[in-house]
Amino acid sequence: MSKNRTPDDEPQEAAEAQAPKIDLSEEELVALCKAHVCAKCAVMAEAEDVKLRALADNENFKRRIQRETDEVRRYATESVLADLLPVLDNLALAIEHAGSDPACKNLVMGVEMTRKIFLDTLKKHGLECVGACGEAFDPGVHEAIGTVCQPDKEEGCVAQVAQAGYVLKGRVIRPAKVLVNKGQEA
């Protein structure tokens, strides 16, 4: 016997000498351990549950961040476009007030062309004008500022537009201020 050996070591050494040598890779050893020991272990099951919940929370977080990022990108120009709306209003007022004065004909034509180019450019960025006369009143895109009685128009439709409204990719930037037809007076 060597000096570090104890009598208790002899049965263990005898068992090791009789046991066949098994050569397993690291992955095989882990899989074997999980299959025979850890499958019945409550701590392992709880750890697996915690891991799955953490993975699910992480995926939900990624999806939410992606959705928020997409929305920020989609509506990033909203404040700039909203600041440009008074320019469109002033161009429309210039056209309206010039009327049919022959002296202003060329100036009005230039303002109309400028307004059209401006609207086309804004449309490329997703801005659309809402609130035309004759369309049904929709409180989602219209703001009623009063009522009028026009027998030639349907009840509940837009009779007159006081200020155009605008929608950016489905989101109302400014509702159209309209007068709604209430039908025939009693």
Rank of each mutant, 00 (worst) to 15 (best):
S2A: 02
R5F: 14
T6P: 03
D9G: 05
D9K: 00
E10R: 10
E10I: 12
P11K: 13
Q12A: 06
A14K: 14
A14S: 11
A19L: 10
I22L: 10
D23N: 11
E28L: 10
C38E: 12
K40P: 07
C41Y: 03
A42G: 10
V43H: 12
A45T: 11
E48W: 11
A56S: 14
D57P: 00
E59K: 09
N60Q: 09
R63W: 12
R63M: 14
R64H: 10
I65P: 04
I65V: 03
T69L: 15
D70A: 13
A76N: 13
A76H: 13
T77K: 12
A82R: 07
L84C: 01
L93H: 12
H97N: 07
A98H: 06
G99I: 04
D101L: 12
A103T: 14
A103L: 12
M109C: 12
G110M: 04
V111H: 05
M113I: 08
T114Q: 14
T114L: 15
R115D: 11
I117S: 13
I117Y: 13
T121C: 06
L122G: 01
L122F: 09
L127K: 04
G131P: 06
A132M: 07
G140L: 08
H142R: 08
E143H: 13
A144H: 02
A144G: 04
I145E: 12
T147M: 06
V148R: 08
P151D: 15
E154K: 15
E155K: 11
E155C: 07
G156I: 04
C157S: 12
V158A: 01
A159H: 02
V161Q: 03
V161W: 02
Y166T: 00
L168I: 08
P175H: 01
A176G: 03
V178N: 00
N181D: 04
G183Q: 11
Q184F: 06
